[in-house]
Amino acid sequence: MDEEPNGFRIWMPDQDCPGLAMARAFGGFCLKDFGLIKDFGLISTPEVTYRKLTKRDEFLVLATDGIWDVLTNNEVVKILASTKTRSTAAKMLVERVVRTWRYKFQCAKIDDCAVVCLFFKRRKPPMKSISDVTD
């Protein structure tokens, strides 16, 4: 699609639908019903990688492709590290993604943007100043 040059999709032969985005391959039942999955290179076997968590890991981000289409890993880390409260981290990230989508892809619809942020370490409470103690 001209509006989404980096978005790869599978199309039904001679039709403008379903325009299945590759990240949503698990939902492509209409392609499967027509026996087209194999013909068009779509497989349902996920790519799985493993990473051993260490004491240095601070959080884990589970997010849909709409997040990763517009932000890099480093940008996501910076956004989460700058949040004042962890309870708003995912919301802040999605708000940033929506703004970035509107800027980068002005003619396209905003893709699904769902995020779960799992923090491993407790945040240290802010240091109290001398004036806080004497008040």
Rank of each mutant, 00 (worst) to 15 (best):
I67L: 09
G27C: 10
R51D: 00
A25W: 10
L93N: 02
L31H: 05
E58M: 10
T83A: 12
R56S: 02
K91S: 12
M12N: 10
T100G: 06
F119T: 04
D57T: 01
K121M: 03
K38V: 10
K121Y: 01
F119C: 04
C30W: 15
V70C: 04
V76H: 01
F8T: 14
E3F: 11
V115T: 01
I67W: 02
D39T: 11
K55F: 03
R24D: 13
L31W: 02
F34R: 15
F59N: 01
D16W: 05
D69C: 02
Y50W: 10
R56N: 04
G35T: 04
R86V: 06
K121I: 00
D135E: 14
P5W: 03
G35I: 05
A63Y: 04
F119I: 02
L53E: 00
Q15G: 07
T85D: 07
A90P: 00
I79K: 02
K38L: 12
S131C: 05
C30P: 06
D39N: 11
K52D: 00
T64F: 00
K109A: 09
P126M: 09
W11R: 06
S131K: 08
K55P: 06
D112M: 05
I67C: 03
D69T: 06
G28L: 04
S129V: 13
D2S: 07
Y50I: 08
G66C: 08
R99Q: 12
I10Q: 08
K52T: 01
I10D: 06
T83K: 10
K78T: 06
K78F: 04
V133F: 07
N73S: 14
G7N: 10
C107A: 15
L42T: 03
M127K: 12
D14C: 03
T88C: 12
L36C: 08
G7Y: 00
K55E: 06
D57A: 02
R122C: 07
A21P: 10
L36Q: 09
K55S: 09
I10K: 08
M22D: 11
E75Y: 03
F59Q: 01
D33F: 09
A114C: 11
L42R: 04
P125E: 09
F59G: 01
M22Y: 11
T134D: 12
C17T: 05
A21Y: 07
V76N: 01
G28S: 05
V98E: 07
Y103C: 13
W101T: 02
S87T: 14
G35S: 05
V116N: 08
L118I: 12
T49C: 09
K128G: 06
T83Q: 11
T49I: 10
A89L: 04
C107R: 06
G35D: 07
C117F: 03
R86T: 09
A23M: 09
T72S: 12
D132F: 03
D14F: 07
L118M: 13
S44G: 08
P18F: 03
L36Y: 08
T45E: 15
K52L: 02
Q15F: 13
E75A: 04
D16E: 11
